Amino acid sequence: MTFDELLSTYEPRLAAAFREAIETIKSTVVLARVVERLDRGDVNGAVEAMQIEPEAFSALEIALQEAFNAGGTNAVGKLPKVMDPQGNRVIWRFGVRNPTAEAILRDLSSTMVMHITDDQRQGIRQALEQGLARGANPRSTALDVVGRQSRVTRRREGGVIGLTRYQIEFIERARVHLASGDPEVMNRYFELKTRDKRFDRTVVAAIRAGKPVTGEALTKIVGRLRDKNLLLRGEMLARTETMMALSSARDEAMRQQIEAGKVQAQDVTKV
């Protein structure tokens, strides 16, 4: 397989594992506990109640391990057939359990999960503070973060869990723009590539009437914006992490061949 073929194979697996982790976190949040802490003004306690923990992303770590192993195995599988000085064929092998390989994979995995969880906690804290600051009640603020349960799928939709801080910030700006009632400001909504175009007519009607988008319409528009950005977040994260895993594994595979004396370092060229 080529590098691009490996990428197209393992990237979707990481994206799916990320979505699975976010769905699990959302489904296990005890809303009453979050609301109780917000009622007390304990934003940090509300964040902790959502239990955004590294263990929630174990399936994502496993997917990353599989990509790493595939990258290394594929790299040695593409090496040419050569003979050693004694006339024996050189057997190329990649050891995923090699101490250095394990250290590289452990670092890739822990860095990925730490970045996700830290960014999540900060983004969620920010979203809770913004909700309370604009006067939303604790329950509504909590639902804006964890998502509202769909009557059809019974799953939580919308919410900011899984989004980056940047995504949370720009979606909040979209909410403010739509609720402003200022036609010029509201028109900025149409610049968003991740908007759900099915709501365009609703926004156009509000702009023509010179009125803000409010209530259930605003909640649905922002919820769909969050869902589409979560999908984008998973795809971007999966692509970045899969490329890192495959590239690191290919480098480590060659290092193992050099260390085993099967090839000299000066004979290896990276393209």
Rank of each mutant, 00 (worst) to 15 (best):
R139V: 14
H177C: 03
T240K: 08
I91M: 11
F94Y: 15
G123D: 08
G72I: 11
F94P: 00
L143N: 05
I171P: 00
R89P: 13
D4A: 14
E102H: 05
I52H: 09
R250I: 07
L178F: 05
Q264A: 15
K228Y: 13
R156F: 11
S110M: 14
A179F: 06
Y10T: 10
I171D: 06
E157C: 07
M243P: 00
L178I: 03
T141F: 06
R173W: 13
A101R: 08
G123Q: 10
I25T: 03
E216Y: 02
N69H: 08
T240C: 02
V152C: 04
E55M: 06
S150N: 12
A253C: 04
P212T: 04
A209G: 03
G45P: 04
N74H: 13
D196Y: 10
G162S: 13
G135A: 14
L192C: 02
F68W: 03
P54W: 12
N187T: 11
T73G: 12
E241V: 11
W92D: 01
A142S: 05
N69L: 04
E191T: 12
S247N: 05
R224A: 07
K262P: 01
T100S: 10
R255V: 01
V203L: 02
G72C: 10
V34C: 06
G147N: 07
A238D: 04
K78Y: 02
D200G: 05
G123C: 15
T2N: 13
G210E: 11
L7K: 07
Q65M: 10
E55Q: 11
V82G: 00
V34Q: 03
I104Y: 13
I104F: 11
F18V: 01
R97Q: 12
I207H: 06
T9C: 07
A70F: 01
V263K: 02
E129K: 08
Y10L: 01
K211V: 09
F170K: 11
L6S: 08
R224C: 06
V203D: 03
M112S: 07
R208I: 02
G45K: 05
V90L: 14
Q266C: 02
